[in-house]
């Protein structure tokens, strides 16, 4: 599988006919898309359509029932040993609730991936972690424990940890969920800044309309009834031009 993405080095993530079934039930099937370098790609859809499951398939936590998920040219769920570690060091994931380790302070949480993947001495890891936390606006919370942080701060710390190794692709699961509109907009701005400044590619799972329109370069929309992708493209154009009822309802916040 290795090297298939190398055919076009600008394609960092590729879904090839991914299907996910639980027993008789099909969550989605025939999901195909590509994410190009430097893009902010949004996977959107209503609750329960399988967005987060698709994200977990992409990052190799779940094997798909059929189809392939290529990230940086590799099928992460099939890799083992050193190749798996090497591939994982090139991606970053921010979880919905931050998923910081509760027993470590924020600085140690961000330094953790460097401890696992590099030979940097402890003071180097700490300095780099400090810089990353400064970039996400948590410069004054270095020694705080995750339990002492608010929801927005947890997500920022989660982004800082995901950024620790300068990943080529950053996967974000529901960055705006549970946040007030101002904090959510601040997080969107942070994502945009990071994407524009460092050229990192983002794959964002969300159903927050404001976020989708603010940050998304391209998107795919999953639908539970259709069990797959019902629309893809620029979210702003989809909002204006798409005449598929489910897409219109989503973008115009109409009850189904």
């Amino acid at each position: 599988m290795a090297g298939e993405g190398a055919a076009d080095p600008e394609i960092l993530v590729e879904a090839q006919g991914i299907a996910m079934r639980f027993g008789e039930q099909t969550l989605f099937e025939g999901v195909s898309f590509t994410v190009r370098r430097g893009e902010i790609f949004v996977i959107l859809g209503a609750s329960g359509c399988g967005k987060s499951t698709l994200l977990k398939i992409l990052i190799g936590l779940y094997p798909p029932s059929s189809g392939r998920a290529l990230v940086l040219g590799e099928e992460l769920c099939r890799l083992t040993g050193r190749r798996r570690l090497a591939a994982l060091s090139r991606i970053g994931v921010m979880w919905q609730q931050g998923a910081l380790l509760g027993s470590l302070d924020v600085l140690s949480n961000v330094a953790l991936p460097m401890e696992q993947h590099t030979a940097l001495p402890p003071e180097a890891r700490e300095a780099i972690a400090r810089a990353k936390l400064g970039l996400v606006g948590l410069g004054d919370a270095l020694r705080k424990l995750p339990a002492e942080l608010s929801g927005g701060m947890l997500k920022r710390a989660g982004i800082a940890r995901a950024l620790a190794l300068d990943p080529e692709v950053l996967f974000l699961d529901e960055p705006g969920a549970g946040l007030d509109p101002v904090t959510s907009a601040g997080l969107d701005r942070l994502i945009l800044t990071l994407a524009r400044e460092s050229g990192t590619t983002f794959v964002v799972v969300t159903h927050e309309l404001a976020s989708i329109l603010a940050i998304g370069d391209r998107c795919v929309m999953l639908d539970r009834q259709a069990r797959g992708i019902i629309a893809q493209g620029d979210p702003r154009r989809l909002r204006e031009e798409c005449d598929i009822p489910a897409v219109r309802a989503f973008f115009r916040r109409e009850a189904a």
């Binding site: 810089a131 400064g134 970039l135 410069g139 460092s198």
Partner: peptide, 15 residues
């Protein structure tokens, strides 16, 4: 990259 990291470190002084 240098400017970005300098900005980050300035924003997160050693406690």
């Amino acid at each position: 990259a240098l400017e970005r990291m300098a900005r980050g470190l300035r924003a997160a002084p050693l406690p």
